[in-house]
């Protein structure tokens, strides 16, 4: 037992040494050039725009900045965005786990169809995602008359925005979990079941602990997209100020109204959210490695 571990360690060391020396064989100039190109690319396409957001946001001074992000319409937009995220992310997390669990641990007819359906929102343009809900729940849509008669508002209100966001962010958790659960295989679950555990118990004590970091990662991606979704939400929002404008929509409106500093102030707030999300993501990646 001890010996075999030793051999294994030795061989990994040897492998590492081999790859390192292979890397060293690459001429220095090529390595530096490639690194520089990558860094320049990142600086130009990521860092520069990000910095310019903050510069524009503070262009007219700190007062304008805080006035912009504490304006009642801005606060309403932030609140609406958070409500939408709080509804969509948990629902998609639950759905994602269920879909991934079904797709990787079981064999059944129509499995590939389900897999394709999960991917569909990635392939469909968000505008179409929004229009679909207008077609279903709009006044001229399938359920339009019934909804109007019963005074139920779906589109141009919170439910429509939530539906559109759910549609767009649907694949994130499932897509993160499926490859992970595929590589893990079903042997641990089989062992658990054969030892007499119920299906739910097996899921809770065996599967979930194995996938939790992947799940977190998927939830974070889903969260980021739910906050930032523009196209689909724009179609179903109705753009009522202080009521159905999410943060991205509010930014567009401010921009179109020549309030550039205010638009970028709210944009900077979203950028901070994004950076925070990335930090959480890195912490999770680091934690999952160390555990």
């Amino acid at each position: 037992m001890e010996q075999s571990t030793f051999i294994q360690q030795a061989s990994t060391k040897k492998n590492k040494a081999a790859t390192q020396s292979a890397a060293l064989q690459e001429p220095r100039i090529i390595r530096y050039t490639l690194t520089c190109i990558a860094l320049a690319f990142l600086a130009f396409f990521i860092v520069l725009p990000l910095v310019s957001i903050f510069i524009t946001a503070f262009q007219k001074g700190v007062d304008v900045y805080f006035a912009a992000i504490t304006h009642p319409d801005a606060l309403a937009a932030i609140k609406l965005t958070l409500i939408v995220v709080a509804i969509t992310v948990p629902l998609n997390a639950i759905f994602g786990v269920m879909a991934a669990w079904a797709l990787t641990k079981f064999n059944f007819k129509g499995k590939n169809l389900l897999l394709t359906m999960v991917d569909l929102p990635f392939a469909v343009s968000p505008v179409i995602a929004g229009l679909v809900f207008i077609l279903l729940f709009g006044s001229q849509g399938l359920f339009g008359d019934w909804l109007f008669a019963h005074d139920i508002k779906i589109v141009f209100a919170l439910p429509g925005i939530v539906l559109a966001t759910i549609f767009v962010t649907l694949p994130f958790v499932a897509r993160e979990l499926i490859p992970l659960m595929q590589t893990q295989g079903t042997s641990e679950e089989e062992a658990s079941i054969s030892l007499g555990a119920s299906g739910f118990k097996t899921f809770w004590y065996v599967t979930l602990p194995n996938i939790k970091w992947g799940l977190f990662y998927g939830v974070i991606l889903c969260n980021a997209r739910a906050i930032g979704e523009f196209g689909a939400v724009s179609v179903v929002s109705g753009h009522i100020r202080g009521m159905t404008n999410t943060m991205p929509l509010h930014i567009e409106i401010l921009y179109n109204e020549y309030q550039f500093a205010a638009a970028f102030a709210v944009a900077s707030l979203m950028s901070v959210m994004a950076i925070f999300t990335l930090i959480v993501k890195d912490i999770i990646a680091w934690k999952s490695k160390s555990s």
Binding site: Q140, L147, K153, V155, F156, G238
Partner: peptide, 8 residues
């Protein structure tokens, strides 16, 4: 268009 589609 939005009013036609149900914006009240």
């Amino acid at each position: 268009r939005a009013v036609i589609d149900g914006l009240e």
